[in-house]
Simulated assay, not measured.
Amino acid sequence: MSPRSLPPRSAPSRRADRRASSSGVATPSALSVIVVGALLVSGVAMSLPAFAQPQGGKAELRREAREEWLEEAEAAGDRLQKAIKAAGREAETLDARISKAQEADEALGAKLQLAQAAGSQPAPRPAPERPAREGRPAAEAPQCRGRLVVEGEGIETATPDVLRVSFGADARAEGPGEALAQASEAVKALLDAVLAAGVAKEDVSTTQVNLNPVYDRSERNAAPEIVAWEAGSSLAVTLKDVSKFGALATAATEAGATSISGVSFAVSDEKDRLEAARQAAVKAALARAELLAGAADARVGAILELSETGISMPGPRPMFARAAVAESAMADMPIAEGAQELRATVTATVELCQ
């Protein structure tokens, strides 16, 4: 019988064979693994006759030694089966990799054929153009190698529409308990008068309560002697209509207030005013940067850093400091709230471009 002629192998198969041979990686063979396992089992089996040789005239193989070696032979057979399964899995993985490589090779060959048929290679992708600034051609890319640090300030002017003031009431008595009782009654009358003047309850709070002894220091060499006790308390009031301050002060003094202190003004929308001042500060900083860069025949690039360096809000402006109040003078007491400035300052670092 003449040997059967083998069919010609395809080009991708030959390329895969060439890659496998050139990479030096041999395909694991299940037959080789079986041969190694068989040699292992046969080695165990060949060692059995050593126990079958006559020793001291006895020709029988000891039963215990035979059973022990038979167990080792079974274990060797199990290891052989595991090795055969592992070799099969590795072979399947390698076949899959070879198949993917063949597909990639065929795809590359198809692309090369298309490129050759077109007569030229694909044109490279053009790089995107950077937008040009005003007055500069698009082909001329700006060079930004310098830095410019500038400051800007924003100012918001507002007329205060909130007034804060403190009213105090004091009492004097021979004993501390009596002094506290009298002061408590005076403060209660003061609180009722403030609420009756139209101030909301949540806009009134107690800020101070005090009790102090009164000493007689008329004699130089004698020890000071307590002759009385003074007690007092203060109420902090927020008035949201500045024009009503005169009427409020009159009502408080008629109710027994002995002092007015801590008059100050505020703006109700202070947060919004500060935000507007910050925005104005940023615009002022960038405008200053443009001015300085233009004087140096340069341009302002990107903003590298921007930070707020400070804010300024007007503080309280005291008008009275623990002074006794004349009731007849408070009704016509003029109040000039003036204007307040809220300031914000920022520092900006920008690129300086030529």
Rank of each mutant, 00 (worst) to 15 (best):
A75M: 13
R66W: 07
L148K: 05
K58Y: 10
Q113A: 15
A59P: 00
A123T: 01
E92A: 10
P126R: 15
P160D: 08
E90N: 10
L163V: 06
R63C: 01
R66K: 08
P126W: 11
S166T: 06
R79H: 11
T159M: 12
D78M: 11
A118H: 09
V149C: 08
A75K: 12
A76T: 02
L112Y: 09
D105S: 13
A101F: 00
E64C: 01
V165F: 03
L108I: 03
R172L: 10
K82E: 14
K111D: 14
K100P: 03
Q102V: 01
R62T: 07
A115S: 12
R172G: 05
V150D: 04
E68Q: 15
C144Q: 02
A59T: 05
P131H: 12
A139P: 03
K85M: 11
P160K: 06
V149A: 14
Q143E: 14
Q116F: 08
R125C: 00
E60T: 06
T159H: 08
R66V: 02
D161S: 08
T157C: 01
G109V: 03
A91E: 07
P137S: 14
K82V: 08
A76K: 08
K111A: 15
G146D: 11
E129N: 08
A96Q: 12
E156P: 01
S120V: 03
I84G: 00
D161C: 03
R89D: 01
E64G: 09
Q143P: 01
R133Q: 07
A107T: 09
A107D: 09
A118D: 10
P122I: 02
I84F: 13
L112E: 15
P126K: 12
D95G: 09
E156Y: 01
A101C: 00
K111T: 13
K111I: 07
E140C: 05
A138M: 09
G77Q: 14
S120C: 10
G152P: 03
L80E: 06
A169H: 00
A73E: 10
L70A: 09
K85G: 06
Q81G: 06
G152T: 03
A118T: 07
A117V: 07
E90M: 08
Q102C: 02
D95C: 01
Q113G: 11
K111H: 08
G77F: 06
A158P: 04
G109P: 04
V150F: 04
K85E: 13
A139L: 10
G146P: 02
A59W: 15
P142T: 07
V162H: 04
E64F: 07
L108S: 10
L61Y: 10
Q116Y: 10
P131Y: 13
